[in-house]
Design a protein around this nucleic acid. Sequence first.
RNA 1: GUGGGUGUAGCUCAGCCGGUUAGAGCACCAGGUUGUGGCCCUGGUGGCCGGGGGUUCGAAUCCCCUCACUCACCCCA
Length: 422
Amino acid sequence: MSSAQYRSLKGMQDILPPDIYLWQKVEQTAQRIFSVYGFQEIRLPVMESTSVFTRSIGENTDIVEKEMYTFTDKGARSVSLRPEGTASVVRSYVENSLYNLPAPQKFYYSGPMFRYERPQSGRFRQFYQIGVEAFGDPGAKLDAEVIAMLALLLSFLGLEGVSVQINSIGCEVCRPGYREALITFFSAKREGLCPDCLRRYDKNPLRILDCKASGCIELRQGAPRITDHICGDCRTHFEKLQSLLSLLKVSFSLNPEMVRGLDYYTRTTFEVTSQGLGAQNAVAAGGRYDRLVREFGGPETPAVGFALGIERVVELLKKAAPHAAPVPLVFIASIGDKAGSESLGIAQQLRQRGLWVETGDPSGSLKSQMRRADRLGARYVFIIGDEELLSGRLKWKGLDGSGQGELLFSEIEAFLTALVEK
RNA sequence: GUGGGUGUAGCUCAGCCGGUUAGAGCACCAGGUUGUGGCCCUGGUGGCCGGGGGUUCGAAUCCCCUCACUCACCCCA
């Protein structure tokens, strides 16, 4: 509803239970998978000098031209909220001379990114990415490992219906030639292109290849393919990647029309897409960027990485299965002040053992306390009143219908540890 | 930046061509005999009908403006 006086900003959302448990699952699973591949976490600022992004992402990309949250700070410096993670990682890699550490160096990060766009399904102004970057190895082996790691993560998360597509967009040696070939090809057909593609023709002709307009799809029949134009080195690299992926049993398909929006990619680019996400169907995407470290003033250092959109993965998980939010192990219902105090003591003791315990309101009816225990999803209820205080035995009841009985106060811990271990 | 859709209780929505105190389901709270949840029954809390202006004896219902949300394009995770 729109009646609240204060609302979060457009495109920015609160992440609340029960969704948060899926977020945690994604982050924890990623952490686990990445660590066995030797990737270490790094945490970087969400704000950088604007030039960190303009130089790396590309001056005339949409991200830089119209999507950055850029402003002047109190020291008259132009700063920007990060629209993606790679630029910051490279800046940090160079600033901290991490190239002096044994190669390859492999890192991952997780956190919010910001782009001033019109929100739509699967797209937000503040969105979260988990990303990885591996530095210092030019071989296709590294590309293959990174892609295999991504595939493994998605499979551990139980995502189905996702597909990996790869492409090679060449290097600074061969890409200009391909670009020329495309311009030549389309120059005779400019009349038929859609207005967007007319812009692309001048700005980034590769983009005509993934236009959705039917007219453009027809026109590009027979257009030169990037994979026919890449140089020998790039071809070798690309073929090696494919054979390694097959070896690693990562299923993938070639998509010579896949284009990346950031300027810094070289050779390998890849994308994981999913059905059922709406128009924004990319779950993760990445590629190789062999020149970027150099451009940041570091030594010639090849690198490869990807970023995964957490919201989109969570969305898929939500569709796949109902959430399993954690529930309390025990709810202690009590009747009367004395029993109420006793139950607090017991709760404290059990919480020190790492068990989730909730307590009821001793001035409320037992019925209302039972009801609350049920709504919380508690597995067991303990009942303590005057009777129990006198006898030294509390009543327990399994809310899943697993019976009820009595229990000496001194037996509580043993009773519960047995349950937890089951 | 461009185009479409939608705005009525916390959530999902009904209120047909304007007519009296604005509804349902779910959720929440409390009861249904004395200390026991889930099902059922009863009651209760909760709505400037997104906001402003206009037409009218009378508007949630018609008209205009505005804001918000949403989907799509551009672009992208």
